[in-house]
Nucleic acid binder design. Structure first.
Lengths: 117, 117
DNA sequence: CAGCATCCGAAACGATACTG
DNA sequence: CAGTATCGTTTCGGATGCTG
C-alpha cells in the first residue's frame, strides 16, 4: 500500500503531525526508542490495551512514513522484528521536548494559585 | 466549561499532543505566533476553510489549556482579540522543530534527488 | 507467532441557519 | 462582529473471529 495522499501537496506540518498523531503512534515510538529491536507480540504486550488490528495498522503507517523498519525472518514459528529507522531516531528527542513542555504546562494549569504567567 | 477529563490522570504526552493535535489547532497557533493579537474574524479569514463552529471550539480548547488568551472589549460592534500566552509561545519553537523534521523526512521519503523546496 | 477481514460505536469534523 | 444551535458526515479506534 502506498500513501493515501500526494506527499508533494502535503504541508510538512500536516505530514509531521500525522506521523506522531493518533492514539498509538506515540506510545509505539516510545517503546521502539527503548529497544534496539522488538517483536510484534512483545510490542503488543507492552502497549497495554492495543488490539492486533490497531497495532498492525499503525506499524504499516509508520513503515510507509519511513519511521519504522520491519524485518521478517522466515522461520517457524514466524518472527518479525521492528525497529526505528535513523529518521525515526531523529524524531525521538523532538517528541520528548514537546512532552516536557506538556509536563510543565499541565502543572501550571493545575495550580493557578500563583499566576506566574 | 472545564476539562472533559481529569488532568491529574492524564499522561503529559497525551496532553501535549491533544493540545497540538486536531485539524486546526496547529494552523491557529501558527497564525497567532505571527501576530501579537488578532481578532476573531481576521483569524477566521486566514484559516481558509474553517467554520465558525470549529474555530470557536478550537479556541475554547486552547484557552482552557492555557495556550491562548482571549480579551473581550465591550464595544459596539463587539471586538475580541486573541493572542498566545507565554506558555503558548514556549510551544512554538518546539513545534517548529517537529515541522522541520517533517520537511526533511518528506524529502527523503519522496526521493533522493535534490529538490529546492 | 504475526497478522487480516469484517462490522460497529464514538468522536471529530463540517454545513447551515440563526442571535446578542 | 463574534459567536451559538442543530444536525449530518466522515474518520478513528476497537471487538471479534479467522488464517498461513
Amino acid at each position: 500500500m502506498k500513501y493515501d495522499f500526494d506527499l508533494k501537496k502535503m504541508c510538512p506540518a500536516t505530514y509531521a503531525f500525522h506521523v506522531i498523531g493518533g492514539k498509538w503512534n506515540l506510545p509505539i515510538l516510545a517503546i521502539l526508542s527503548e529497544n534496539e529491536t522488538i517483536r510484534y507480540n512483545e510490542l503488543k504486550r507492552r502497549l497495554h490495551g492495543i488490539t492486533s488490528t490497531m497495532l498492525t495498522n499503525c506499524l504499516k503507517e509508520l513503515i510507509d512514513y519511513g519511521i519504522v523498519h520491519r524485518e521478517q525472518f522466515n522461520e517457524v514459528p514466524p518472527r518479525v522484528e521492528y525497529s526505528l529507522t535513523p529518521s525515526g531516531m531523529k524524531l525521538v528527542p523532538l517528541i520528548e521536548s514537546i512532552v516536557g513542555w506538556g509536563q510543565d504546562n499541565m502543572m501550571s494549569s493545575l495550580n493557578n494559585t500563583s499566576s506566574t504567567y
